[in-house]
């Protein structure tokens, strides 16, 4: 039997999101995707859920610079799409299970899919309780600059391409009680140890 592909789009408001998500979780649906698309002054988000053949898409809009709750607590695979949507569209998610904080994709300009959000994002950073070392202004040198800044903290003998990524992730590792600057240095030392025999050959 030939089936038609289901095209169900449900318009909701951003406030209803968590209620709806909890409902899908309780009914045993699977989380499929978050899709952002830039619109005038904000971002349209589509959350897709499926349960076998049926698939439903929740559609709502948020303003540039908004913060919405993360659904990664209920659906672990959502961390991927939430980090991606933040990097490409500038929509912030609170409480992501693995938060890369703007370092998920190596983009050459901030929020490339939604350039209008840069100013709103800058305002959000200025009011953030923790100082973040991401370059926000599009006119300045962007993400590359932050990589260079991070590597200054790290042992200079360590390979710079790998360690900054380490530094960024462990900065946001909630389980770690150690100061963030200690972990990358530790990682750098161990990398050095493991490679010491190879370096000796050189």
């Amino acid at each position: 039997m030939i089936n038609e592909k289901p095209q169900v789009f449900i318009d909701i408001s951003a406030d209803e999101l968590m209620t709806k998500v909890e409902d899908y979780d309780a009914r045993g649906w699977r989380f499929v995707n978050i899709c952002g698309s830039a619109i005038q002054g904000g971002v349209e988000l589509i959350y897709s859920f499926s349960n076998g053949l049926p698939m439903e898409n929740l559609r709502f809009t948020v303003e540039n610079g908004s913060t919405i709750p993360s659904v990664s607590g209920r659906f672990p695979n959502a961390f991927f799409f939430e980090n991606e949507t933040y990097d490409l569209f500038g929509v912030r998610f609170s409480g992501i299970s693995i938060d890369f904080d703007g370092k998920f994709y190596k983009v050459s300009i901030p929020t490339p899919m939604n350039p209008d959000s840069v100013q709103a994002r800058k305002a959000a950073y200025d009011s953030a309780p923790v100082a973040l070392d991401v370059a926000i202004d599009a006119t300045e040198v962007p993400i590359v600059a932050s990589v260079a800044t991070s590597s200054d903290v790290v042992d200079n003998s360590a390979p710079s391409a790998v360690i900054p990524a380490q530094a960024k992730i462990h900065t946001h590792d909630n389980d770690s009680s150690a100061p963030s600057s200690v972990i990358p240095a530790q990682a750098g030392i161990h990398t050095h140890d493991n490679d010491s025999s190879a370096k000796g050959d050189n």
Partner: peptide, 25 residues
Amino acid sequence: DLVIEDEKVLEAIPQIGFVHRGLEK
């Protein structure tokens, strides 16, 4: 990022983003 103790992996933190090309754009 593999957090290991002895030879056992306790935690793994993935990171991608090295070849993002923006084809959707």
